[in-house]
């Protein structure tokens, strides 16, 4: 599975508010969305992140993986993350 890293300068607040200084765009994230970005920032691999989510939340790994991939695709489109 491909791994991802957050692009430079992306700032996420505790409230789940994300501001892209390069483009001036802002976003809001729900709790899991914010967690995923946090895990990415810490350098976790995709598999590690999915495991962590399935461990902490009431969801099986298949669903967590599918949602993770969908989420990552959006983040790529918004130029928030990139594949390593």
């Amino acid at each position: 599975m491909e791994n991802y890293k957050m692009l430079n300068n992306v700032a996420v607040s505790e409230n789940g508010f994300l501001f892209l200084p390069g483009t001036g765009e802002s976003f809001t994230l729900n709790e899991i969305g914010r967690m995923i970005l946090e895990y990415l920032k810490e350098g976790n691999s995709s598999n590690e992140i999915i495991e962590k989510i399935a461990g902490e939340y009431d969801v099986d790994e298949t669903v967590a993986e599918r949602d993770f991939n969908d989420f990552i695709n959006q983040l790529k489109n918004f130029r928030i993350v990139d594949a390593i």
């Binding site: 607040s13 409230n15 508010f17 501001f19 802002s26 809001t28």
Partner: peptide, 8 residues
């Protein structure tokens, strides 16, 4: 400020 109103 924008964050405050958007999130809260």
């Amino acid at each position: 400020k924008f964050e405050e109103i958007t999130v809260k």
